[in-house]
Amino acid sequence: MIEIRDLAKTYGRGARAHPALRGVDLRIPSGMFGLLGPNGAGKTTLMRILAGIVNPSRGAIQVEGHDLATDAGKRKAKAILGYLPQELGMYPELTAAQFVDYMAILKGVGDARERKRRVDQVLEMVALQDSAHRRIKGFSGGMKRRVGIAQALVNDPRVLIVDEPTAGLDPEERIRFRNLLVHLAADRTVILSTHIVEDIGQTCRDVAVLARGRILFRGSPAELTNAAGGHVWTVTADRPVEPEPGLTIVSMLHLTDGIQYRLVGPALEVHPAAEPARPSLEDGYVWLMKQESALL
């Protein structure tokens, strides 16, 4: 369980001050939790604060009962944490097994036999046991991500934080990665931060949407989907069309008799030929973002 109260983070000072988080309140229970938001929403800042790397400007955080405001609490929280950063840097000259072993040492897994058992176990979990003794510099992007998740798991963390883990992966790797995260969430808290709506829909039972440093939505993916109810339409046209102001084209499907547009927006502005459609999670997200933009 993670509890976040009135969390704020501002980078810089004076005229250069840039607020990244503005009063975030969240309770994140055990299981798979999705944090969704556009680029620059503050997701990475929030992930880094939870990982104990960035200090908040204001607010309180408890990770499994450990207070991140104190040095002792932060160290205890880090010991039960697994973290996969968005920009994953590793030591290319080390083998996958060496790298994971090194991270286990840094995380305080002292007993050599236990460490060896854990390294073998996590490399098997991410299907890298056959490449365990190959140098990381020869790995593909997907394999590196898997080494990243292996190092995050090597201390058997109660909280796993993964920031944009599927960015840059091919579809097959993405599916494999999502399935792995769902499996891992069975007995721990997994926080998945992403701007890819599909990743959340496929994995999370609980989701928060962050934009401009604020939580816009907190609930289930189904509730986020339902938020767009009555605001989604499809229009089929034989040539490309410009959407009316206030409408957003969510997708275009090229059919034999034209192009089918999927639109999200207020009912008043919809094309007369438009037909109502059942919303998807992506529609819900787009509708939420449109409402946020309208408030500015």
């Binding site: 880094r48 990982a51 104990g52 790397i53 160290r75 205890k76 880090k78 010991a79 944490l81 973290y83 950063p85 920009e87 994953l88 840097g89 590793m90 030591y91 290319p92 991270m103 840094l106 995380k107 305080g108 190092q151």
Partner: peptide, 14 residues
């Protein structure tokens, strides 16, 4: 000059 600096910072190492 450490490619895994962020990971290192996320560990309990002081």
């Amino acid at each position: 000059d450490d490619p895994a600096l962020e990971l290192r910072f996320s560990t309990p190492v002081r």
